[in-house]
Amino acid sequence: MKIKVGLMLLVLLSGCGEPLPEKGFAGLGDQAAAFTPVVPGRVFSFPADHGIHEGFRIEWWYVTANLKDAQGRDFGVQWTLFRSALNAAPQANGWRNQTIWLGHAAVTSAAVHHAAERYARGGVGQAGVQTTPFEAWIDDWRFGTQASGADPLADMQLTARDPRFSYALRLTSARPLVLQGDQGFSQKSEQGQASYYYSQPFFQASGELEIDGQRYQVNGPAWLDREWSSQPLTANQTGWDWFSLHLNSGEHVMLYRMRHKDGAPYLTGTWIDPQGRAQTLHAGEISLVPLDTAKVAGHSMPVRWSLKIPGKQLDVTTQALNPNAWMNLRIPYWEGPVQLSGSHGGNGYLEMTGY
């Protein structure tokens, strides 16, 4: 979701130094009547939908990877690019452009978590997304195709660099994209807030990761989320808990819990079989319960969860690889790799916002 993110962290940067609003996490619950609404029945078109969607207020390109080195040590990598439109008018050229770009990158090991962010104004080439050939970038952080065939996501290069870390990964997949929710219409509330949302959960990643001067050759599964919306939260929703999970049996699971100031959370998800066929999971089919919390940057964070999907014989516990995976950025949140135990083994990513 980011929401991963996979919905995620809009920055309405016109008020850069102000406290976060109480009307939906990071302003995502603000009214957006002037922007294009998200409605059911959209027909997705690729590669065009890998690109920018003008008229919508917020969208993101979001990648996570669960990696191991030759010694079996576990790592996580995150790369996200957000596009935020400050108004619904057609975007002007040059410095008159009303688009704000935000990049987040992070690495996690069992002992260390580093996060960094970049900002850019649209219209001047510092950040952007193009579809032919596909590339998303902010400064020298890049997610771009190396594929020569019809599918630009078949072979990708992912890079980011910070004084404390860097990574250069190749991501490949021959599997289909997955439309989340109702054929890509991903509802976030009973009131109808929603995003357009698709994923590529079948990436395999390999390459080099550097943390605090130490280099590692790594490989493992990776996950891409793409979402765009104009108002993905209600004013009563304070944040979310989002999971993307790679099961050792070959299935994948995406689910999220949208928390409210009062009342039960909005809970939904997707079960993805090894061939890429997706089945929507409704609240009555999922049990998602926090088990243990940790004090992280002054916040009480649920870093161990019980997840059950009885209809799929799934009964697992998710444990954070590093409970201190706090994204200490302009809009702070928790995000890091998790490991599974119970009926299924595997790994994945957890994002928690609004705590």
Rank of each mutant, 00 (worst) to 15 (best):
D151M: 05
V63L: 15
T64I: 13
L10W: 00
Y196A: 02
K4Q: 09
A320N: 13
E210C: 07
Q187R: 10
V5P: 07
F165C: 00
R73P: 06
P332G: 07
D49A: 04
A294T: 08
K295P: 06
R215M: 03
T268Q: 13
R118I: 01
A88T: 03
E54F: 12
H53K: 11
K261M: 01
G346S: 08
I3Q: 01
T108K: 05
V5Q: 08
R42G: 11
W326V: 11
I3A: 04
P274S: 10
A294R: 02
S45E: 15
F82S: 11
W141C: 07
G220P: 03
I331H: 12
A115H: 04
L307C: 03
Y355W: 15
R42D: 12
P302D: 01
E208D: 11
E117R: 09
G298S: 06
T99S: 11
A194H: 04
F56E: 02
T317Y: 12
W95M: 13
R304H: 03
V63F: 13
T353I: 15
R304C: 08
P90C: 08
A70V: 15
R330L: 14
G311C: 01
I3L: 10
G192Q: 10
W61A: 05
S306Y: 10
P19Q: 02
I331R: 13
A205W: 07
D273Y: 11
L245M: 08
L267S: 10
A283H: 15
E190M: 02
R96M: 08
G15H: 12
G55F: 07
L291I: 12
A32P: 03
W240F: 08
M254Y: 05
Q313D: 13
T159M: 01
I331N: 09
I100N: 00
E335R: 15
E208I: 01
E285A: 14
P163H: 05
D273F: 09
D49H: 04
L247P: 05
R330D: 12
P152C: 06
D262T: 14
G103C: 07
A110Y: 01
L209E: 05
H114W: 03
D155Q: 12
P152W: 10
G354H: 03
A320R: 14
A264I: 02
G345M: 09
G184V: 09
V107N: 00
D151R: 09
T80G: 04
R257T: 00
T64W: 07
